[in-house]
């Protein structure tokens, strides 16, 4: 008797949880698929006054172009509005930010984790404060000196600023990874005749790869997603993707080229999609690294 009651309950519960998960999946993923699908339509289909089914079937797109899919939006964004330049800029910024902050980060964090002094505490505090401080508050401080020195609007300046803002966090994260590696490891390497640097290069780094990759992912995301710094510090021709999209909004809404922006948004999301697909485990482990340890 009791067992059947439990069974009943669990079936009901299971049904409920499945529905809940399905609902959440819908909420989380549907907007992306909707926008992706809609980016191949003309504006009157994507923003349809009559019937939202139009965006799925693409009636007007069919009428205008003969097929239900058109790459007009992409053409407009990439060729006419020169979105490809922004893509190259983004790639450059991300590449250099990741490389620089990882180089400084691994060396610095290694030194910090082996020094044993109370650096770690102050590092944590700085990382915390920087996590909390809106980057735009700092931008106000950068602007005037950069104008004065003629550094404003250049990609390299932005890279340096992004690295600087990112560094406390990177250092903290790598530091906690290094702390997990026992000191005996580099000591035994040095007994075997390595110099300090060789021990770092041939013994510690190979063990550290997962941590380095995770940290690299996070600095990549920061550089890729940043809007405040790139929008303020880059001149028009050097813009990266995100401010470029924001710029589209101002100009295209009036010209009726919203689809350019939609196509650009889809293009900007695609790399992240692939990234999550391949590095899901690292992202999850990076997110939880700080939390589970306390």
């Amino acid at each position: 008797m009791t067992s059947t009651v439990v069974e009943n309950k669990s079936i009901k519960l299971r049904l409920f949880t499945s529905c809940f998960i399905a609902l959440w999946l819908l909420v989380a993923a549907f907007p992306f698929f909707w926008t992706f699908w809609g980016s191949f339509k003309v504006e009157l289909d994507f923003f349809s006054k009559e019937n939202w089914m139009n965006a799925i079937t693409g009636i007007r797109t069919l009428r205008e172009h003969g097929t239900a899919f058109t790459i007009e939006g992409y053409e407009g964004a990439w060729v006419q509005e020169e979105f490809w330049k922004a893509v190259i800029n983004t790639a450059l910024v991300c590449l250099f930010v990741v490389c620089t902050s990882l180089t400084i980060g691994t060396l610095g964090a290694y030194a910090l984790s082996r020094s044993g002094f109370r650096y770690a505490f102050w590092l944590l505090i700085i990382a915390l404060v920087f996590r909390a401080m809106p980057p735009i508050t700092l931008v106000a401080g950068y602007l005037l000196p950069f104008f004065e020195w003629g550094l404003w609007g250049k990609l390299s300046t932005t890279i340096v600023v992004l690295v600087a803002i990112n560094q406390p966090f990177t250092l903290w994260m790598l530091h906690s990874f290094f702390q997990k590696i026992p000191k005996d490891l580099d000591e035994s390497a040095m007994v075997d005749g390595c110099t300090h640097f060789q021990a770092f290069r041939y013994v510690i780094l190979p063990v550290m790869w997962p941590g380095v990759i995770t940290t690299g992912l996070f600095s990549f995301l920061l550089a890729y997603n940043d809007f405040a710094v790139t929008a303020m510090l880059l001149s028009k021709e050097n813009q990266t993707m995100v401010p470029k999209i924001a710029g589209f909004l101002g100009t295209t809404q009036t010209e009726g080229n919203v689809m350019f922006a939609v196509a650009a948004v889809v293009s900007a999301t695609a790399p992240l999609f692939v990234l999550v697909m391949f590095f899901q485990r690292q992202i999850v482990s990076g997110l939880t690294a700080g939390a589970v340890k306390g």
Binding site: L25, F227, V265, T269
Partner: peptide, 17 residues
Amino acid sequence: FFSLLPMIVTPLVGSLI
């Protein structure tokens, strides 16, 4: 995988969508 998407996506892009 699908749950991570709203978080990973660029905030500006997500809000535009």
